[in-house]
Simulated assay, not measured.
Amino acid sequence: MLIDTHLHLVDRDQLSYPWLADVPALDRDWTYDSYETVARRIGISGALHMEVDVHEDSIGQETEMVGQLMNRPGSLIKGAIASGRPESPDFAAYLDSLDRKTVKGLRRVLHVVPDDLSQARLFRKNIRRLASKSLPFDICMLQRQLPLAAALVDAAPDVVFVLDHCGVPEMTTDSFADWKNKITELSKRPNLNIKISGIVAYTGGDFTLERLRPYVEYAIGAFGWNRVVWGSDSPVCTLGGANLETWVASTYALTLGCSADERTAFFSENARRIWQLD
């Protein structure tokens, strides 16, 4: 069983995505029906929808869209990692308003905002509120920002965090050692997990298994099999020349040597525990 913890769907008729205008390769609809057809063929048994940085006015509608998809008979969608604005004084009320049947976690994309946003007192106070709601927080930061990620995790020790995309390594530059050191430091925090998701998008299109292997193997080795989850980052993974099928195949190839228990933890059980999935 394979649970996809990082699926993006795009419906431009329903929602507003300002950033898509700057990424022509992704600027179209990416539907659940198309995803489901491929996902069932390749063994994906469930998926969490990851917020797509919609316009702030569309956040509620995006969550409602995911809820509607969940209610389809036999749906693969198990919940939403919804968008949130922890920098807002209205964040506590927002948390109280969430449909918890749909929302399993939250994310605020942090590489598109000033670096100091996540270090602000109000932001950290609001992130700490997630502990009482049993809501994990996905951290989406660039490699250069990873010390900020460490500071945020330290500021909320009772919150469960997930680091997206192996910390978005700078794979087109000679900076593996820097990434490795930052991942080593982050792995010391027991409330932080790491997501092996769509790193093909950062290869600059030069995509091979051997290009990915050092990052995948080091991330898993640093965090251990009980703190690692898998995600497709579909359709963003296509930016690196890999479709959903190719990324799944690559994942299987990169984990051939693991045990049955390790595979189960990585592919499904850790996700079930972190996001409290049925």
Results as ranks from 00 to 15, higher is better:
P18T: 12
Y218R: 11
T203I: 10
Y218S: 13
A253T: 09
G257V: 07
P157W: 03
E170S: 02
I274Y: 13
A156Y: 06
D278W: 03
I183S: 08
R129G: 00
K101P: 01
A131R: 11
L146I: 06
L209G: 05
A219G: 13
F207M: 06
M171R: 09
P86I: 03
L9C: 05
H6K: 03
T255H: 14
R211H: 15
S88N: 01
F267C: 08
T172P: 00
G74Q: 00
L110R: 01
R213H: 10
W247P: 06
S16G: 05
R100L: 14
I220C: 11
A92D: 05
T63C: 14
P214W: 08
D57T: 14
F161W: 10
G84M: 12
T203F: 09
T208Y: 09
K180P: 05
E87I: 03
V228H: 04
Q145G: 09
I127T: 01
F137C: 09
E217V: 03
H55E: 15
A21R: 05
A150I: 05
M50K: 15
I139V: 15
L7W: 14
K104H: 09
M65G: 06
L95P: 01
R100P: 01
E62Y: 02
P89N: 01
T102M: 01
K188I: 01
T63G: 10
E56Q: 05
I220T: 12
D29F: 04
T37V: 08
I127C: 00
T63V: 08
P169W: 10
H111V: 06
V159E: 13
E185R: 09
S132Q: 14
